[in-house]
Amino acid sequence: MMFYCLLVFHLAIVLIAPIFSMGLINRVKSLWAGRRGPRLNQTWFDLVRLLHKTPVYSVTTSWIFPIAPLVILATTITASLLSPIVPGFAPLGFRGDFVAFAYILGLGKLFLMLGALDTGSAFEGMGASREATYSALAEPALLLGLGTLAWASGSQSFQDLVMPDGSWFNDIALRILIGVALMVVLLIESSRVPADDPCTHLELTMVHEVMILDHSGPELAIVQYASAMKMTMFAGIVASILNPFSANSGPLSIVLAVICSVVLISAIAIFVGLIESVTARLRFRALPLFTMSAFIAVLLALVVTAGNQGVSP
């Protein structure tokens, strides 16, 4: 019974929250700029409008182009089923599932890039090249961070990783360090400021948006929805790492954990909106250093964990 309740909650967050988290980000940006801003569910209407349009493909494209958005969405949904939103619960869980999580997302990214290259446009090639570079540099931080959690928690399944069993100091240090690292990964992977600017209008400066320049109608809607879903998924992971409650104890704890996660995801969306309001996108040259910051946070977490595990005999 509890399992099904959590499952419904998980699916609801995965499928619906992307719309509202986008709305929240846009609302924060508007308020900051002194405007009223669109409705919180405006993204929904945008997507529906796009889904009704007839797409136009480029004459250069092959069969990859119409397939790519669907693969991207399918990989994102599959990855969301593997990742926790509430600590201790993910619909699909097995040993080493976070490795599968990272690689399935990789498959989606690959199709995004191939779809961009399929149009033969120099701008889209540029976007694909940047996406390939920065996401490859963010990958070690993601997997090493989760691997460190696995060592600290003595578990190898994504849903249980997020409950370290060390002393409270180690526990808090670990949560904060990995949380910071994954927050950086979130900004890079979901193409937000300062890694990328979703609102820019100059093709030369974009990463994600330039890859989908030639997508229109349903294709555009699917890619944008998948992108929002990816951001919410990473927000869910960060939320479950910072969440002090877990789904493995009594019903009260579960309810608290669920509420806490929803609040944390909203807070992350607001935080992303605030970053976008107050900072500009980093120069591309500085981006590798930005990814490096996530890696260093993870290395610190590794040192904390190694120290906690005792000196080698």
Binding site: T54, P55, Y57, T119, S121, P218
Partner: peptide, 14 residues
Amino acid sequence: VLPRCDRRHVTWGC
């Protein structure tokens, strides 16, 4: 279900 592509155009050259 969703509308299919019925015309093609050159790649957007900005």
